[in-house]
Every structure is written in structure tokens, then in C-alpha cells.
Nucleic acid binder design. Structure first.
Lengths: 152, 152
DNA sequence: TATATTTAGTTCGATATCGTACTTTATTGG
DNA sequence: CCAATAAAGTACGATATCGAACTAAATATA
């Protein structure tokens, strides 16, 4: 790879990183007390894609180590936003379900997100989000595959 | 903001966040021992934009709290990759300079980056990086401005 | 000039992240 | 059926991140 290509790539990932950091900080600033973005993200996933998945499935969905997911889930359970129960179909694993308090919290966080990002998005050029998102999704998919191939 | 818009926004930032996470993990896996992405990013900044800036300037450049920058810099100094000296022009502040070991390290990390991202980028659709990067930069600029306006 | 305010940096404490190693349960191969 | 291996989850330790409060130095104000 020529050096210029490396530079461009690096710039690209740097922009991605800074946007991720800024959006996370902006969103978390609106969240109550000890709640973090991962907490909300998990609740959102449970609402949108359904209950009853295992901790490991969640860890894979968000590309985090399972120890990180253990920590996130225990925080949510401590706050009464989810329940973690033994999996009747597999003694090794558990099943995560969202509580009604969890649903309520998620809904109010969606409102918070709207308030955080609403004023911002009005200033983005029209249609960018719609065209960028699928492109980013594809880039993500490529990176996922590269990762699955393992480090060669 | 309608709910659909909120959803789209959320999806967008989620993709951004996952790409940031994947790229960081892929890159750090190539870095020796205790080196992190922020370590490299600071060295890269010193090489590309020049030596002799203050810790606070670096913290602002990367949008991190100054306490985080203190930690990053002390790690780099411990490894002999930078020097931190008193600022002769301002008794409160310090001046950061990169050592030759730091330069050498940065150069080899650039190679590592090329090896990490080279095989990946070949699989991205041609030209995407070139068109996406300026768009992301503009989105980032909008978010920066929104942040500077402060919480209203 | 004397005091108040602002600025740069650090220290400290709380929490997040994540790798390693472990326990428990399932699955596989003989 | 039994041993070997794999898989799910957790405990633990190391480090990163970051907010609050602090110190020291510079600047503003009276």
C-alpha cells in the first residue's frame, strides 16, 4: 500500500473515531447518573430485536468481549432494568429479558437522543445520513469479515 | 423530530461507533505491548503538525479531557517516546517534544497500520474512502460547533 | 499594586474495558 | 458410557477514561 493510501485511510478512521467520541459524549450527557451508552444500546437492542437472548449473543452483536458484556448486564440488572435468568435449554448459559422499568427507561432515552441529535442533524446537509448509513454498514461488514478471517 | 428520524440517526451513530471500535481493536492488536491508539495518535500528531505544543493543546486537538491527556502523555514519557519540559514562556504549562525513539516508533506503527488496513481497504468499493472522508469531516465540524455552543 | 479571576496541569476516586484464567455444563470421539 | 474438547459465564487484575477538587502561575480589575 502506498503511503498516501495509508494516510487517507488513517484520516478516514480518525474522523470516524472522533465522531463516535463526540456522539457518545453528547448522548451520555443526557443520560441519568450512572447510565452509559452501552447500557442504553443493550436495552434498545432488546426492545427492537426481541427479548430472551443470551449474554454471549449480545456480546457478539456489539462486538465486545464477553467480560465487558457481563459487566454491562450486571449494571442493568442492579438497576432493575433487565432480568437475568438461567437458560432452561442450556445449563451453561442465561437468558436476558427486559423489565417494564427497562422499557420505560429506553423510551425516555430515545427522547433524550432526539433532543440531543435533533438540533445537530438539522445542520447536516440534507440526505447525507440516508446515503452514508448503508455505505458505513457495508464497510463495517467488510471489517467484520476481515476480523473473522482472523489475524493472518 | 419524528421517531423515524431518531431511528435513522441512531443507526448512523451505531455504525460509526462499531467501525471505530473495530478499527481501533485491529490497529492496537498490531501495536507492541502497552501501546494504545491514543499513544500512537499523539506521536503521529507531533510528527505531522510539529513539536512543541502544550498538553492542553493536544487535549483540545483530540477532544479529550485534559486528565486523559495527562495520563496518555505520562505513558509516552515513561517509555521514552516524548519529553515533557517546562514552558519557558508560561510557568503554568509544559511543552511536549518527540524523541528520536518516538519518531522511530511512529514510523513503524505507520507500517503496522498499512499492513492492518491494506487488505481491508482493497475490499471497500473503490473511491468510497475518498468521498466519505470529507463528508464525515463536515459532520464532525457540525458536531464540534454544536458542542462549543454548549448545553442550552 | 493588591486582590480576584482565569488558566494549565495534576491528584484522586469511581467506573469502564478487556485479557487471562477458572468453573460449570454440553458436545464429540472412541 | 467415558474421556477429551468446546462453550458460556464469571472472578480477578491491569489499565484507560474522566469528573471533581486542588495547586501554582498568569491575567484582569479595582
Amino acid at each position: 500500500m502506498p503511503n498516501d493510501d495509508a494516510d487517507r485511510l488513517f484520516t478516514f478512521f480518525t474522523e470516524i473515531g472522533i465522531i463516535a467520541q463526540l456522539s457518545r459524549a453528547a448522548f451520555e450527557a443526557r443520560l441519568p447518573d450512572g447510565m452509559t451508552l452501552p447500557h442504553f444500546t443493550v436495552l434498545n437492542h432488546l426492545v427492537r430485536l426481541g427479548d430472551g437472548c443470551t449474554p454471549l449473543a449480545l456480546a457478539r452483536a456489539f462486538q465486545v468481549p464477553k467480560t465487558s458484556m457481563t459487566n454491562t448486564l450486571s449494571g442493568l440488572e442492579r438497576k432493575g432494568l433487565i432480568r437475568i435468568q438461567p437458560n432452561p435449554e442450556d445449563g451453561r448459559s442465561k437468558v436476558v429479558t427486559i423489565t417494564s422499568a427497562g422499557r420505560k427507561f429506553r423510551d425516555s432515552a430515545v427522547v433524550a437522543a432526539a433532543e440531543t441529535f435533533g438540533p445537530m442533524v438539522e445542520k447536516f446537509p440534507a440526505g447525507w445520513i440516508e446515503t452514508l448509513t448503508p455505505q458505513l454498514a457495508e464497510i463495517r461488514a467488510v471489517m467484520d469479515r476481515a476480523r473473522d478471517d482472523g489475524p493472518n
